[in-house]
């Protein structure tokens, strides 16, 4: 109540908060991170446009690592179970998080999905995010690594147009490099130059899931990211 004149008007009280708006998501992400660490699982948030080759590169990764490491995956998908079906066919346990109209995964969705996995029996867990270069970038899921798949057909200017996604990534998979000869002068240097303007420590792996080119370097780095493997 106003104390000055007794008019009965409510008093306006400022409450200082100074907290991240996504602190609720951050809290669940921390919980997921602890869960992965406790089971010694390397968690990866794989992001990229629709059609950038996320699932294809994951299939190729799963097949190449099958004899050495145990992979698991969840795929965020607006409406279908197709990606998880493809991953199961590639030999890894996989589930779908159906997001409906949501354009990104959040930590709570991942937490919920984790209940279906026996993390003790996995070494690497990949969270394949919804195909989108914007929204997934700002949600921490509890991953150890953010990886962005960028296909060479999308154009070398994409890092400059969607800087937040690339800035937060530890590595970029430049996919579909088998198509480079058909792209009229587009080359890998152009992609590297763009990445250097959005990533303080740019790291790119040019790969082709089709021919297997470049997969060795990517797999080597991936294995080195999990010290005990």
């Amino acid at each position: 109540m106003c104390q000055d004149c007794g008019c009965g008007d409510p008093e306006i009280v400022p409450v200082e908060v100074h907290e991240r708006l996504l602190s609720g998501n951050d809290r669940v992400a921390r919980h997921n991170r602890e869960h992965f660490a406790a089971h010694n699982v390397l968690a990866i948030n794989l992001m990229g446009s629709p059609g950038s080759g996320k699932t294809a590169i994951l299939e190729a990764t799963a097949r190449a690592l099958a004899s050495r490491h145990r992979l698991g995956a969840v795929s965020g998908d607006l409406a279908t179970d197709r990606d998880a079906q493809r991953l199961r066919a590639a030999g890894i346990p996989a589930a779908t998080i159906t997001t409906g109209s949501a354009c990104h995964l959040d930590a709570e969705m991942v937490h919920h999905a984790l209940h279906d996995f026996a993390l003790d029996s996995l070494d690497i867990f990949v969270i394949e995010n919804v195909g989108n270069l914007v929204c997934p970038a700002i949600y921490d899921l509890g991953q150890a690594l953010n990886i962005v798949a960028l296909s060479v057909t999308e154009g070398e200017d994409k890092p400059l147009k969607y800087p937040v996604m690339f800035r937060n990534a530890q590595a970029v998979l430049l996919t579909k490099i088998d198509l480079l000869p058909h792209l009229g002068g587009v080359n890998l240097q152009m992609f590297n130059a763009a990445l250097a303007r959005v990533m303080p420590e740019p790291r790119a792996f040019p790969v082709s899931a089709l021919t297997g080119e470049g997969m060795d370097r990517w797999l080597e780095w991936l294995a080195a990211s999990r010290p005990r493997l």
Binding site: P10, I12, V13, P14, V15, R20, A196, P200
Partner: peptide
Amino acid sequence: AVLSCEGCGMPARLMSGDEIILERIEMEVP
């Protein structure tokens, strides 16, 4: 610019610009 220092070559650090923060709520209290 390219995100490494022209002088010493170190990776640059984002000092500000990624904030998504609720600063203050002004509320009516009876």
